[in-house]
Simulated scan of single mutants.
Amino acid sequence: MALLVKNNGVIDVRVDIPKILWSSSNTAMSEDLSSSSNNTSSSSSSSSLENSLREFLALGEIDTSIKFACENQLYTHALIISYLTDKQSFEKTMQNIIFNLDNGDVLKTFYELGAGSIPSVVTNVTKAHYGDWKRHLAVILANRTDTNADFVDLCIKTMGDTFIASGRIYAGHFCYLIANVPFGSYRNNADKLAVIGSIHAGQSNLSFATIPNLQLTEVYDH
């Protein structure tokens, strides 16, 4: 009745009624949740966060609930809520979660690859905070399928380019080999690979290649 008077007889059933229901039951609900939870600080913190999330949902504040869940690393809830909302919301939430993962976490590499994006590690592999490049490459290579083979090879080849640009020739050539980059001619600067372990670009003869690298290339080629 008070609400009717306050709003001049106009009530939004979707907004006003949920607020009344939630407000009137909030104390009892908190007591029930508190009595059934553990007394540890982590449990209390998690319960408090989820209570806030419940309140946003009870008030129909879907976008706020998704944002709140992401900010507090309640990723499972964020994904489920956004999935039940619409495709655009789900994709936006998924991208937000992936973006906020640590760069050195191979989960980020896996998720980016699965989402059809070139993993950020590919062009930043030589930076220390990306961690061990072999772990990232393992995740990329292990998830190469018939349907994404060309895309995965592009990612690995790009990683090889990043290594070469930083002077890490063997790592770069290793990437080229597993990405199925063909051997080319040392006379063609556009070819990425002529002799394993040697950079041929700008060279007019084979003086750039050491005997061990020539032997290594011959052994691999045969």
Rank of each mutant, 00 (worst) to 15 (best):
L177H: 09
D153Q: 05
L113N: 07
N180F: 10
C155R: 02
L107N: 06
A128S: 15
V121E: 04
T123Y: 08
Y130R: 10
M159P: 11
V121A: 07
F110S: 09
I98K: 06
N100F: 02
D191Q: 02
K157P: 01
T126C: 07
A115S: 13
V106K: 11
N180T: 00
I178L: 06
A190L: 13
N189Q: 07
G104A: 06
T93S: 05
G184K: 05
A171Y: 08
G104I: 11
G184I: 01
Y186E: 11
K157D: 10
R144W: 01
A142E: 15
I164M: 13
A179V: 13
S117I: 04
R144E: 11
A149M: 06
F174E: 15
N96I: 03
I164H: 03
W133E: 09
A138T: 02
D150H: 04
G167V: 09
N180S: 14
I164L: 07
K192R: 10
F151K: 14
K108A: 06
Y176H: 08
N180E: 14
I178E: 06
A128V: 15
D153E: 14
K134R: 11
N100H: 14
D146H: 09
A171G: 07
Y176Q: 10
I97L: 03
F110W: 00
G131I: 01
S120Q: 14
H129C: 11
Y170I: 11
G172Q: 09
M159R: 03
D150T: 11
L177Y: 09
N100S: 14
A115T: 02
K92G: 06
I169M: 06
T147Q: 01
R168H: 15
T109G: 05
D105H: 01
N100E: 12
D161N: 15
A179D: 04
K92P: 03
P119Y: 04
G167D: 08
V181Y: 00
I156F: 00
K127Y: 15
C155S: 09
T109R: 04
N143W: 00
F99Q: 15
A142H: 12
N148W: 00
H136S: 05
R168F: 13
N189Y: 11
K192P: 12
D191K: 02
L113M: 09
L101K: 13
A149Q: 12
A179L: 04
G184W: 01
V152T: 10
T145D: 03
D102E: 14
D105S: 08
P182Q: 07
D146G: 15
H129R: 13
Q95L: 12
S117L: 10
V181N: 00
